[in-house]
Design a protein around this nucleic acid. Structure first.
Lengths: 217, 217
DNA sequence: CTAACTATGTGAAGCCATTCACAAAACAGT
DNA sequence: ACTGTTTTGTGAATGGCTTCACATAGTTAG
């Protein structure tokens, strides 16, 4: 899908970069100086070739005969993933899921800073969550622009998700993370990631339901 | 990966079954009797061939020249996904994320019933959430067995996630949904789905960071 | 400095999911 | 009943991701 200097980078490769990043964080804490593609692969259930191929899309980071420099590679992956900078995030919908997300420490740790919260419930508008004021969703577009919001997190009911997405897109935001249990559409220049917990559970129940049939050759 | 009567079913096919299911729910509400693979595909951005191939793994549900019967197909997919029955679910970790999950109505709607909650915080143990008592995680294994828990949802810090997974697995549970931002391991007979919100955001920041380079041929 | 070893980087091969294309089957109108 | 149209179901072709395999290059020990 994605190309960088002429090469196509698959979504799975990006996923694995996130995984490598976490492993490298651990290795750094554990005091390792270098790590081989073999060791890196063993920590997950991947092949060494996969690790090398993934990294090769972005440059040459290793030393033959020695492996990859742990700290340096971690830094490089952070740069590739864009998590070495700060991102301005807005959250739409401060119900159960939204509240949990505001308190989710992992976000801030990685540079994702929630700057604005929106809701359409008059009782919530004006209240504060973790020091952030809840704004009326009517002012969504103008406030997104004024605050240079780059990423929007959606924690709203499925029924209104598409409406809000359209507005967010028209405000020029091109990265959206949705928690609505709905199938949503965005233009091709916008990246939408969708976490659908119901779908995850359906995967599990599928496997539970069909586990005795997996190998019915 | 998965085989049913000799055919390999990919994870993506299962994902799409969930999607078809939601579309069919809508179509049913809208009063449609039948739907063609073409119409079904158009609602998502899929090809008609994809829809037909996905369904063909599980049987023949359509009528040539006419299409698929909406209600009947929805019912059939529900059966394939195993969401026509009730599942006993336990939740481990009743922090921010855990609390949101307990209140998440979509779960119950699909037959996923949270029967037990666990935590290791003495202040939380004995309290109630939506009518469900919080138990000491020390009693995890015995209570999972006693209550015939089939699915476990993990909303615990990354640092303890693997420990709890190991215990859950040893209790005989073979379906786990984790919200811990960690890379986790399970035996091959256990299905683990992992929702890692930090990874989702990293995807977004990758795309934001590299969007000007996508087509640098 | 040399020899033996280790591990990267990458073209080629293999494999798996998606798409194509068409025969088969049912519908609809006459 | 017949003809033309619609749409499924599926083997074959395609395309893309993963794995293989090896040349290359750097390390380590003597």
């Amino acid at each position: 899908m994605v190309r960088i200097t002429g090469k196509r980078i698959s979504e799975s490769t990006i996923n694995r970069l996130s995984i490598y990043y976490r492993i490298l964080e651990s290795l750094e804490r554990e005091g390792y100086q270098t790590v081989s593609s073999k060791d890196l692969a063993q920590r997950e259930k991947l092949t060494p070739a996969q690790v090398r191929k993934d990294l090769s899309f972005f440059g040459q980071f290793g030393t033959r005969g020695l492996g990859y420099p742990v700290s340096e590679l971690r830094r490089q992956i952070a740069e590739i993933l864009g998590i070495n900078k700060r991102w301005n995030v807005a959250l739409v919908g401060i119900g159960n899921v939204g509240s949990a997300l505001v308190s989710y420490k992992e976000f801030a740790k990685q540079g994702f800073q929630i700057k604005l919260i929106f809701d359409n419930d008059q009782r919530k508008i004006g209240s504060f969550h973790k020091g952030i004021e809840v704004h009326d969703v009517k002012n969504l577009k103008s406030l997104l622009n004024k605050n240079n919001i780059e990423i929007v997190i959606l924690a709203v009911p499925a029924s209104v998700a598409q409406l809000i997405i359209d507005e967010v897109v028209s405000a020029g935001v091109s990265a959206i993370l949705s928690f609505a249990p709905a199938n949503l559409r965005v233009p091709s220049n916008v990246t939408l990631r969708s976490v659908n917990m119901a779908m995850e559970l359906e995967h599990l129940s599928f496997h539970l339901t069909n586990e005795n049939l997996y190998y019915t050759a």
